[in-house]
Design a protein around this nucleic acid. Sequence first.
DNA 1: AACGCGTGGAG
DNA 2: TCTCCAAGCGT
Length: 358
Amino acid sequence: MDQKRDKSEILLAWYDEHARLMPWRVPPAQRQLGVLPDPYHVWLSEVMLQQTTVAAVRDYFVKFTQMWPTVSDLAAADDGDVMAAWAGLGYYARARNLLKCARVVAHDLEGVFPDNEAALLKLPGIGPYTAAAVSAIAFDVPATVLDGNVERVMARQFAVMEPLPDSKEALRELAASRTPQNRAGDYAQAVMDLGATVCTPRSPHCGVCPWADGCVARAQGIAAELPKKRKKAKVPTRVGVVYVARRCDGAVLLEQRPDKGLLGGMMGWPGSDWAQTQIDHDQPLDANWRTLPETVRHTFTHFHLHLTVMVTNIPDDPPVFRGVFVDSERFDANALPTVMRKVWKQAQLALIETGSDR
DNA sequence: AACGCGTGGAG
DNA sequence: TCTCCAAGCGT
């Protein structure tokens, strides 16, 4: 019992000195004066941080809080504006669930986020990790956060040899055994910071680790080898075709992707499905399409993609077409997912100099 | 329960 | 170039 208090107090003392500044974070000195962060900020940052690095999230968080200062503002936003603002951050289901969640909080909960794990867990896009993180960080509830960092720290502290994800529940119990009753929010952030900056995946910095004393994996010289993970199969390659049509007034032809599935709900260039081999498909409109010499390459979580890019300049709207022409003043490539931005970057050069293709 | 779901950085 | 991986969730 004293052991537990010692461990958490040692880590909290380390955090008091080493806490990193982040736009969504209230520094430990202020938290100890009783200042808690805005639950909306905590929730928004935690959703953005799911499987995403702090460096990637920072600018998006600032942009979102400027555009939508409160959860009610976000709830009132247009879906398309939110998807466009999220473009480039990845895992787009998060953005759709973000809006759903904001609307539940704004309309059913009077704009107030729940302060406990069970209620948070019922909201769209909030799973076990985010429910624990929001309740701890926003409300100082002594919930146990278990993310990739905490899993790694615990696996090393206790030399857990069983591979993930089989060991997940064991790691959760070990993490719970160290969660203090006081300063729950600081502790949650501290143990994740420790994993992110000291107890890193490769070459952990055990020399400066506040928990090096008593770390079983370090004592055995196997810290860098933990946690063990089951191997994942390597990713296949798929191919596809995309079509970039530019009207002479500068408007371009886009299509909204279906809500479910890859890049769900995002705007993109019309084209074929993406499969192991080239598959039959319809062109979005009848025109004199040119094939660009360079394919666009992109890697998703579970496959590589090689896209053939077709381009055309057309004088004005064709009689039939699939998709929607977006005016040049309203078109913003940054509102597209990254793979579609890459396509635009290639197509743009080929389209701008040439006149009509027919 | 295992799989689908993005992206960019590090080594 | 290639592999790994990051504050996971939904189905």
